[in-house]
């Protein structure tokens, strides 16, 4: 369980909201990115939503995935509307099959879709088309333009274009976070949504949980064998009184935003944007406090101190 507000800490108050003197502890991850295009932005969004589905946490999903931003037709390789998605995994070996399987099952199958490298210039690469091209059953062909190779795989609506490789970085960061506490559940949700919206404007990051928000913050381990994580009892309001709680009496609910980014700087920028959004509107919506999750600073390589970001 993250340790919050040790006795030496000095919380600060901004706009009527307490900001804990603590930090978010995040981990090095492997990241990759795809640009998915389609005939319309509607179908690019559908495809991007599906390919990033079931991608909230590496623990249970294998990868953490989300939509980074929509790409204008002027900026996509084929001049059609596109969506940039990011995917994160524990390691290159863990991420590679996730990216390839998701493209094989969710992009190849989506009407009019094409799939391109969204992370150019990296040394490490995923051989994206090394499996999916064989769907062409020998009829696949490649077209090399400059130093990029594109596979043309025959499908029922024409051809699925899939770039041969996509970039991969091991400088990615997963687990940037902030906990937002409030005395009104509706107002808390609206505030957290505003923070997610602000974070969405920052490039190179995603908030992989549903709508960017997680309500089931966890501690490490459980009383049951085989459970890697279990409810964060110190932050579960209904356990106040029954377990050691971090929550004041008037805290009704806590929501968390988890941030993954291609670089540490991107995660810091995202946290800064999210914190600002909460501090700007939160007090009027019943938000009382902002905190962050960490493990004492010994497990994660990246620490984002809230005080330095507000």
């Amino acid at each position: 369980m993250p340790e919050l507000n040790p006795v030496t800490s000095k919380p600060i108050e901004i706009n009527g909201i307490t900001v804990d003197d603590t930090f978010a502890e995040a981990f090095g991850m492997t990241g990759s990115s795809l640009i998915i295009t389609a005939d319309t932005i509607k179908w690019a969004r559908i495809c991007a939503t599906v390919v990033t589905g079931f991608g909230t946490s590496v623990i249970g999903c294998g990868a953490e995935c989300g939509i980074d931003y929509e790409v204008s037709p002027n900026d996509t390789p084929d001049g059609r509307p596109g969506v940039r998605v990011l995917m994160f995994g524990f390691s290159p070996d863990a991420l590679t099959p996730q990216v390839k399987n998701r493209v094989g099952q969710c992009v190849l199958t989506s009407p009019g879709s094409a799939c391109y490298n969204g992370l150019l210039g990296t040394e490490q690469k995923i051989a994206l088309a090394s499996g999916v091209k064989f769907f062409g059953d020998g009829n696949q062909t490649a077209k090399k333009l400059g130093n990029r190779r594109f596979w043309r795989i025959p499908v029922m609506d024409g051809e699925f274009i899939c770039e041969d490789t996509v970039g991969m970085t091991t400088d990615a960061v997963g687990g940037g976070n902030m906990l937002i506490l409030g005395r009104d559940r509706t107002g808390l949700l609206e505030t957290t949504e505003a923070a997610v919206h602000a974070i969405a404007q920052v490039p190179d990051v995603i908030t992989p949980f549903p709508g960017g928000i997680v309500r089931s913050g966890s501690k490490v381990g459980a009383k049951y064998k085989g459970m890697f994580a279990s409810t964060n009892d110190a932050f579960a309001p209904t356990l106040r009184g029954a377990a050691k709680s971090e929550l004041s009496d008037d805290t009704i609910a806590v929501l968390e935003i988890v941030i993954d980014g291609l670089t540490s700087a991107a995660v810091a920028n995202a946290m800064r944007a999210g914190l600002k959004a909460v501090l700007d509107v939160g007090a009027s919506k019943g938000v009382t406090r902002i905190s962050a999750g960490n493990y004492g600073g010994k497990l994660g390589q990246h620490h984002y101190h809230l005080k330095e970001l507000v």
Binding site: D78, E159, I161
Partner: peptide, 13 residues
């Protein structure tokens, strides 16, 4: 007749 996305890719490149 075909509507080939690769032609858009080639044109833009």
């Amino acid at each position: 007749l075909h509507d080939l996305n690769v032609l858009r890719l080639i044109s833009r490149y």
